[in-house]
Each structure stands twice: as C-alpha cells, then as structure tokens.
Amino acid sequence: MIDMRSILGGLIDAGLAPSTSQRIEHALKTPQADGGSLLSRITAAAGQAASDTKQQAQAGNPVAIGGLGALAGAILGGAKGSAARGALGGAALALLGQIAYQALQGRLPGAAAGRSGAGAAGEDLPLGVREPKTPGEEAVLRSRSQILLQAMINAAKADGQIDGREMDRILSKLDEAGADQEAKDFVLAEMRRPLDLEGLAAQVEAPDLAAEVYAASLLAIEVDTPAERSYLDRLATTLELTPAARQHIESVLGVKAAAV
C-alpha cells in the first residue's frame, strides 16, 4: 500500500515552487490570536523548546521527528533522510490542519472542531503529529494525504503542464525519501494527468478540508502569473471558501494579495 504521507513529505521537501519552504516558515512564525507563534505552539505540543527543534531533529529525537518538530527542523536545515521525509508528511498534515482551523474559526462555527489544529502543551497531539491509533484514523490520514497531494500537483499545472525536467527533479526527491516504485508511479501518473479542478473539488466533503486543499495549493505555486491567480480564484469558488477564510490562508502563508 502506498504511503501517502511519505509522498506528501517528499513533495514538500522537493519544493514544487521556489517559495514552498519560505511559505511554511512564514506560517510557522505568524503570530496567533494568543500572541504566540504557530512554531512556539507546535514545539510546546511536541514537548520541545523552539530553541532546540533543529538540534533534536538532527539527533533523531523520536518526539521531534515524529511530529511538527520535523517540519520546523527541516525548514531550519535539520531533518534529513527517509525517516524525516515520512515525518514531514505527517507534520504537513498537522500544519495545514492548523491553518484551516484558524481560517474557519469565527467564520463557520463548528466546521473545524475536532480536527487537526495543534493544541497547547498537555493536550492530546492531533493526527499528523501523532501516529493513528485505529484503522479509521489511518484511513482518514491516507485519504487526506492523497487529496492534498493531488491538490499540490494540480496547482502546479495552473500555468501549463509539469515539464519533464521538473518531473525528474520531483522523482529524484522521492527516491531520496525512500519511495518505492508504486509510489513514484502514482506521482508520475498524477503529474501527467490534465488539470482537473472539478475532480479535485468533488473529493472535498468538509469546509476544513477545503481550506487545507487551498493552503496546500498555495505551497505548490508562486502565484505570480495571471493563470495561477485565475486558478486560485476558481478553486476558492468551487470549494466555497469565504473571502475572509481565503484571505487568512494567504496571509498566514505570506502570499501577496492580488492587485485590485
């Protein structure tokens, strides 16, 4: 069975857009409603101080590697190897879930309740940070990972098909992540498919997942061409994202607002 979380981690590490890592870093450092940053919240939740996240990830600390600490460590230049790539996938799920949770709070009551926002220290770690405990949780993570993978690859096609050189670069990153041939074939097939916004949106059945899909799409493109902005406009409309939720997601990821 394909490990969708590891593939997601491989794509995050590959950086579908030049700004992928900068967007993640911006999200980690964005102040939250309580005045702290997402980085401080997730490191507290993982039992790690912000100052030693990188060192713990490099040292292979299972708490850091097993959750959002891996994502922060990789962005700071720490996590390496296939174990880290697998952790990056879970970490990305938790990060995107937190962004979605914050985007919907106060805008769609109850929509994001109980999902993957990173809690304060002492709370149960959310899916993505911790391993699934039941077959049902595993199925949820697998499904979400696949949809977010498809969202990123779909967005990368917004201003044209992914060319052969870019495909080779991404597949090379998946090799580094220890992806097997089945996983690489899946990604290659997705990259070769025509852009299918409606097919992607049809899989999104909840507002919080819609927000995650939009956030994941922003990690895959620069948003510096009319075609990319048009794609995002159509995606937001199809996913029925409110303007306020969309603005929040773009702000957290450091995406400049479109010119009026």
Rank of each mutant, 00 (worst) to 15 (best):
L11K: 11
L16N: 04
E25H: 12
H26A: 12
T30N: 08
G35D: 04
R41G: 03
A50H: 02
S51F: 00
T53W: 10
Q56I: 06
G66R: 10
L68K: 05
G69Q: 02
G69W: 02
G73S: 09
A84L: 03
A87E: 03
G89K: 11
A92F: 08
G97I: 02
A103S: 15
G114K: 02
G119F: 10
E123N: 13
G128V: 06
V129L: 11
A139D: 05
S145D: 07
L148G: 02
A151F: 06
A156R: 13
A156M: 00
D159E: 09
G160V: 10
G160N: 07
D163F: 12
G164M: 08
R165W: 05
E166W: 04
D168W: 10
R169C: 01
K173G: 09
K173R: 15
L174K: 09
D175C: 03
A179F: 01
V204P: 04
A206S: 09
E222K: 09
E222T: 13
T225D: 03
E228H: 02
L232N: 06
D233Q: 10
A236C: 11
L239R: 06
L241K: 08
P243N: 06
P243M: 14
A245V: 07
R246P: 11
R246M: 11
S251Y: 04
S251Q: 12
V255W: 13
